[in-house]
Structure formats: structure tokens, C-alpha cells
Design a binder for these strands. Structure first.
Lengths: 166, 166
DNA sequence: AGTCCGTTTCATTTTTTCTTGAAACAAATG
DNA sequence: CATTTGTTTCAAGAAAAAATGAAACGGACT
């Protein structure tokens, strides 16, 4: 009579909830949807591999979300499928190497943007000479500053990566 | 007869378009909406302060978006209002110190999450002893790893900040 | 080959986030 | 002090992102 909560998270332990919320928050930071954070959080604290069924049931998410989320996480390298003898289903484990997320973010989000940024700057610099002389000086200074920051960023990234990878 | 484009960006120079697109992309990265990127981008390449009217007109955005976007940018410290003699309107300039964005992001997004993360970890560690012995070991290791990463991150941040600020 | 079990895909729905514009507000002007 | 000009606020609408679930798929077992 006091069981039977709204069918919701009744199946998750306090520890699991903490881990899940934590990863929802962190992964949101790098633009991943809630469901992905949930899945990774659950797998992260799970002492044994989980099948998709289990994940769906315990997190109470849809088939599609689970499948897509797992796919994404596998592509990132944050989750691996392991073989489970005598079971047709795939089972999933979290790769505990958290640097993966930071690394992926840097490689797939930051770096490409910086490259495109540099291209833009080059184009802007080409346009500069055609500006009215009064404005040119000021604008030139600004673009130079932009470039300076991009360069700085690009120098910094490899260093951060190194730090992340041990 | 070949003028009169769809009333759209006809008022923006190629240079402005580049800058705007660039900032839309970068600011999106730290979770800011398109309109904010547009405003900052326009101000960044503008050799002189712009009034809100001008911003609205040239970017073709709404009054509300302009007001809110400018407010946000002012709060971040990325835009300043300057006095323009003989004009009732506020005029806005971009603060060229791009580190502002990174700094704000770190301070308002990253750091708080890390703190909340540490709290969670502490709570998880308290729960640990109550786990079934077989699982405990494995889970303990995972949580230790989590903590390790958070610590690492927290150590890294001040360093990054220092790097950003010159 | 046919059935079953598990997974992926994707059109649709739901949720979240952003934008709009009208109304309230403020502050300078005549 | 009424009016005009400029700005903020916020409820409603539009757009974007994420979740759902049914249908298609694929591969193992009989």
C-alpha cells in the first residue's frame, strides 16, 4: 500500500540515482541528451554488464532511446558490447576511461570549429583592404585579436589533451 | 529588379556575416542561443558603438531578443553600454576580451557541476558499505575513479584559467 | 525455409528552448 | 505633467531537440 510508487524510478538504488544524475549533468555539458547520460550513469556503477532490456526497464526509457543512446556511446568509445555466454542479447559495459568524453568533445566540437574559424578569419582578412579607411584600422585590430585567440586556443588544446590522457 | 533580396541579411557586409556566423558557432558551444551570437558577432566587428535599433534592424531580430541578448551579454561582461553624446539611446560595444566567455563558462558551468559532483561522490561513498560484498569491490573502484577524475579536473581548471588570462 | 528474439530505424509526438511582439515601464523632452 | 522615445518583461507562438513505439531488419535456432 505504500509500495508501488508511480512505477517510476522504483528500481534504481540511491547510488545509481546519484551516478545517473551526475552523468546527466556532465554529459549535458557536452551536448548529449539526458537519455545518454542516464544510460552511461547506470552502466558506470553497474558491477556487471547489462542487456538493453534491463537498461530500458530500469531507466524506464523507450526502445529507440536505448538503442540510439547505446549506439552513440559505443561510437564515442564510452561503452562496449561484451559477449555473454549462452545469451543471445548484447550486454554493455561502461568504459571507465572518462577522458573519452573530454577528448571526443575537443576533437569533434572544438577543433573543427577552430579550423572553420581560422578559415573565416582568412576570408575576413582578405576583405579588409576594401573597407573604408577610417574603419579599416579598427576592424583590422579586432580581427587580429580574433586570430590571436584562436591561435592561443589551438596551442592550448594539445596540451590539455596530453593532460587528460594521464 | 535584382535588388530587393528577401529583405533578409541584405544589410550585412560579407565581413559581418563571417564574424556573426563565427560567433554563433562558438557561443552555441557554451550554450548561448543564436541571437546572442549574432549580436556579439555584429558588435565585435563594428568599428563604432551600435544602438539597439540598429542591431535589431541589421540582424532582423525582434525587440525582445535584442534586449535580452544584450542584457545577457552585459551580465557576462562581454558587451558594454557606452554613452553617446546627444543621443538618448544606449549604445553598445563588444568587449574584445574573448577570454570572458571561456572564463564565464568555467565559473558558471563547469565549476558548480564539479562541486555538485563531489558532493554526490561523497554520498555514494557513504552508501558503499551497505552494498552486497561481491559488488562492493567493483563499485568502489568505479567511484574511486570518478573521484580521481573530478580531482584532476579541479586541479586543471585554475591552470586553464591562468592560461586564458594571458 | 520459417519462426523467434533482439536490435535498428524512422515518422510521429512530446518536451524543451528560443523568439516574438504587445504591454508595462522609465526617463528625457517640450 | 503629458508626450514622445527608448527599454524591459513576459505570455504566447515557433523552432529545434529528444523521446516514443511501430515497423523493418537480421541473424540464430528448429
Amino acid at each position: 500500500m505504500e509500495e508501488q510508487q508511480a512505477s517510476k524510478d522504483s528500481k534504481l538504488s540511491a547510488l545509481e540515482v546519484e551516478a545517473i544524475e551526475m552523468f546527466i549533468n556532465f554529459l549535458k555539458l557536452i551536448g548529449l541528451p539526458k537519455s545518454v547520460g542516464e544510460i552511461y550513469g547506470l552502466l558506470f556503477v553497474s558491477p556487471r554488464p547489462l542487456a538493453m532490456d534491463t537498461i530500458i526497464e530500469r531507466l524506464d526509457i523507450s526502445l529507440g532511446a536505448a538503442s540510439q543512446g547505446l549506439k552513440l556511446l559505443r561510437n564515442l568509445g564510452a561503452v562496449k558490447a561484451v559477449y555473454s555466454p549462452g545469451d543471445r542479447r548484447d550486454h554493455f559495459v561502461a568504459d571507465l576511461e572518462l577522458s573519452t568524453f573530454a577528448t571526443v568533445f575537443i576533437k569533434e566540437e572544438l577543433m573543427p570549429r577552430m579550423e572553420r574559424g581560422l578559415e573565416r578569419i582568412k576570408r575576413m582578412e582578405e576583405i579588409l583592404p576594401a573597407l573604408p579607411p577610417d574603419d579599416r584600422k579598427a576592424t583590422e585590430a579586432r580581427i587580429k585579436r580574433l586570430r590571436h585567440w584562436l591561435d592561443k586556443g589551438q596551442k592550448m588544446l594539445p596540451w590539455i589533451m596530453k593532460f587528460l590522457l594521464r
